[in-house]
Design a binder for these strands. Structure first.
Lengths: 186, 186
DNA sequence: ACCTGAACACCGTTCAAGT
DNA sequence: ACCTGAACACCGTTCAAGT
């Protein structure tokens, strides 16, 4: 619908168009439902066209994960800038809400089929994202490391369990306050 | 290799053979690498044969996830029986080690593509597995619920982050003691 | 430089037919 | 009751050829 059906695509930014359409399909159908041929069809281009812009389906998924990490990094940096009274709680909430609002993208970022070794772009994006966490959760002191990992694990676990519908939300319960309660429970 | 190549498979327990081979392939190649045709080939049977025992590929994955939950339940029950001095820490360690020793299976258990609604077998197996957790982590008191969820989230997050290679293990560090430290960090 | 058309080797799934 | 053989509609990917 966002694609004019009879425009000869010999010029425009096909890479962008593919990424935008892929993000939509990803959130609607999940990673399994994101086919390269479907994507080409959705954008109105031949099945072989995406191969000029991505290294196959794996390359497309990698590019999507990179934009996911970038969005994540931005969301975390925004929280830092806002100088919240309880930084750890604020970042935890942002972390969890990002996961819930970008479910398939978040899952893709942590997908085991995207090996970060020998994929410098992905590795850098991921490192930048996680650097925003280390910033708040305790530094590199030998004892601080354990506390930082424990905090990260709790927040990440909460995100994943909510994402998978594993934690039952009770009737009329606000997910925001549940997240706050769990994060602030020391 | 475990399959005699020229035995007429008209009799044996094909369902078991398929499940056993699938578990091997799953841990070796990951969920994406587990194809129904590959599986049939590995067991020495026609591509259509598995359809007499599973409702397509989705049915196979569901059956695998069920056995995963059963193994998980058994591991947790065994810890309970052993009457450890610190039950929460002992169960947390078992939880994390189960995930690390059954990586692909663990991921499959929490895969979003296995919808538990209208899949009673899967739902029951999962409920039984999680019931073993509730048993130790605080009951159903209104305040205890938050503490229980927080503990679960921390353990689950630790498992997932370790699984994805997200937490860097330092040189010569024992993963067992790291898990203990993080779990016991209140 | 970027895209198309056609082809290749594969899937998952179905269904008649065999035993 | 359980399995085979052959077919169907699809994939991801490659490659010559077009503009």
């Amino acid at each position: 619908m966002s694609t004019p059906s009879n425009a000869p695509y010999h010029h425009g930014d096909l890479r962008r168009a593919l990424l935008d359409a892929a993000l939509l399909i990803l959130e609607r159908e999940g990673e399994t439902g994101l086919g390269l041929r479907d994507l080409a069809r959705a954008v109105g281009v031949s099945p072989a066209a995406p191969y000029r812009h991505f290294d196959g389906r794996a390359g497309l998924l990698e590019a999507l994960a990179v934009t996911g990490f970038q969005r994540f990094t931005r969301a975390m940096a925004d929280v830092s800038l806002s100088q919240p009274s309880d930084p750890l709680a604020a970042m935890g909430k942002t972390y969890v809400l990002f996961a819930l609002n970008n479910a398939a993208l978040f899952r893709l970022m942590f997908s085991p089929q995207l090996k970060r070794d020998n994929r410098p772009g992905l590795r850098m994006a991921a490192d930048a994202a996680f650097a925003t966490l280390r910033h708040v959760s305790g530094g590199d002191a030998p004892a601080g490391r354990i506390a930082a990992l424990a905090a990260w694990a709790r927040v990440h676990g909460l995100a994943v369990l909510l994402l998978d519908g594993q934690i039952a939300i009770q009737a009329g319960e606000d997910i925001d306050v549940l997240v706050s309660q769990i994060i602030e429970n020391q």
